[in-house]
Nucleic acid binder design. Structure first.
Lengths: 219, 219, 219, 219
DNA sequence: CATGAATGAGCCTTCATTCAT
DNA sequence: CATGAATGAAGGCTCATTCAT
């Protein structure tokens, strides 16, 4: 009927499509953050966006796809700002590692919703077979990140800023895992942890980082 | 008028009841571990136990109640063995803290299902209003645990085994949070993390603990 | 085991049984009045009495049997006091009819729970096949009541207190049906009717009776 | 942004939707009439309509909603025909009141299912909190009905067709309540009452009305 | 006579998703 | 490209009642 065939998708269409996607993702993220991914239904998202169910399926073929789209977006943002922090830090390897861990702290404070979402994602996908998909995504967003961490340790031993008995293939991976674990736990349990520990989560996180750095530093 | 506590009800009944509860809890735990709490349905549990649906509801009034019963049980076990580790450790406060963190490592290795379950529980209940219930449960199982942690830091500063610039109200809470975060993350993501980091999770955990202890220790 | 064989049921046992029945009936009636017969479950009654389910079934073989036992009891009470009112009234047939209708008004005011229960019973059993059972019960409690009503009309025409164009087989039945209908409606809808009509239900009922009596009276 | 009122949705859709609703309501009403609202399950309605469960829920979100839709419909019909009867009656207030009460009799005879349904509704909702909803519905369907009844009494006293000692705020409300009570009782208990009283319900009802009117009329 | 345990038969929804228009 | 309608497949839970002890 229309003169243009559908797959030409001239600019205006593309812009429209992009706007719709955003709308869906924004609405979904808000709901996920409040109620948890598992407790949010497609119906919730649909009524939050005002888009009809069948229309939504033109953009995302399932709830999982919405989740993955958000994961990608948030991982890109996250890795970009961490990237920047590390690159901006000049000096010894210890300085760079400090920048890395502090960037995770900043993220916790300034983008707690993002961290909470990633915590949920981890928990949810611990039971899915999507491992490959996630690994591929990470590799695409942040290629070579593991080698880079190992290199940091090696550099630090070389430049004398780190203890000499650290294992380049192990230590920083261990640290990063712990810091991310701490970060996500604090973000998820948030006020609950604050109530239990009687300390604001930011302080708890900064103290963790301080002790770790003291442990890494050459004596 | 009526002795409401007719729970004198002759031992055999009680024993039977307890056996049934166990059967249900064991079956549920196994399913939760494989598929994740949220993806396990009452129907799954029912067919796994061989008990009829309506019978099961005589024991647990909802899936949540099964979850809570497991949480209680696992927390009791966990706190008992950590308790023992700390009490068995003799020497400076640092020795005790070392024992505490290593106990968490042992738990990760020897009872990874337990840790995985607790990780799921944390994730799930981040969105529920059960905060009070959990806090009450923790207080019942491990009363005064927070004061105890603060005291350990104070003792360590006094006995010269810990750095003198630590904050008794903050440091150990921060450490414990991070270690539990690391522990649960490693347990949940398990093989996935191993694949990514190329290191067995036990080593990653032990290295985390090592660095933290180095950071705490007096120089 | 016990020396006495069961069906001798010596006095103490009988007394006990009777007390238990009462307890059940009282608890059930209270629940029925608050929540409505249909919305009360056996489980509710059981927990309200404190008697175990299986024990309760020793007394009543179903919820319906409890209902019927209450119906019988309330009908006996009701018919007794109406009986008394009529018999106490001396004078013309109109005086006796007046007493009858006023007795129904007194019941509405003084025993509204009883009336509400009967209203529920009517509604519920409009769909059951228990017609015969009810008719038999009524016949047993109040034998010959219909002939008696017809006779009242006849007497009233004879003694000049009633209009002469009334039909002995019809009029009083019609009146009684209407008055019971009004009585039960007022009892069931209670405060709702008061709010709508802006008049207390007692006044509404008394006015109905007044008009009916004016309509019956000889001019 | 989005025209929420996309209910322009082309006539055919609307027509279809309306037909489906009717189908459901008709089937439900038939079942309610035979078995009683409380004994009819969603499953019954579903298999009676031939519509799938999940489809039905697109039209009515619960059994209650079906009931309310029927109530509204029947109240509209009922009030319309009573309205007409009163308006068609010309003459004294007594003539109008006569028309009103006879209209209720006609309804009993010609639409006994409708009356039975309303009787059930009254009984059921005596225990629900829906009072406000019902009052709102009545006010919407028949606004100012109470003032109108009072006015009728006042007019009748003025035009000499009614006794002068009637209370405009009370009498007709009392009469209407009694007549509706009688009407619904006769409709519900139907054949049972006929068997007991040995008279067709129509005659019983007409006699009630006759006596009431005699009681109202000026002497 | 009392009791704890067991249970079959239902019940009312909810949800992600597909399809014809 | 958008939309209304439809739906298969579960899902969680309740209830009256029966038995073995």
């Amino acid at each position: 009927m229309l003169s243009k065939t559908s797959n030409v998708s001239s600019a205006p269409y593309r812009v429209h499509r992009e706007r719709q996607r955003r709308r869906i993702m924004t609405a979904a993220q808000k709901l996920f953050d409040v109620d948890g991914i598992d407790r949010v239904t497609m119906a919730n998202i649909i009524s939050a966006t005002g888009i009809r169910a069948s229309t939504l399926y033109e953009y995302f073929s399932s709830k999982d796809e919405i989740v993955w789209a958000l994961v990608e977006e948030l991982m890109v943002q996250s890795s970009a700002s961490i990237r920047t922090s590390i690159d901006d830090a000049t000096g010894s390897a210890l300085v760079k590692i400090t920048a890395l861990l502090q960037a995770l702290g900043d993220e916790l404070v300034q983008h707690s919703a993002r961290v909470r979402f990633m915590a949920q994602f981890d928990a949810r996908y611990a039971f899915d077979w999507s491992v490959e998909r996630l690994v591929a995504l990470e590799e695409q967003i942040f290629p070579g990140r593991f080698e880079e961490l190992s290199a940091l340790i090696r550099d630090g031993i070389a430049d004398g800023s780190l203890r000499s008995d650290l294992d380049p293939e192990l230590t920083l991976h261990a640290i990063v895992n712990a810091v991310i674990g701490a970060q996500r736990r604090l973000a998820s349990l948030g006020s609950r942890v604050e109530k239990e520990y009687g300390q604001p989560i930011e302080l708890l996180f900064r103290e963790t980082v301080r002790i770790l750095l003291l442990g890494l530093r050459a004596t």
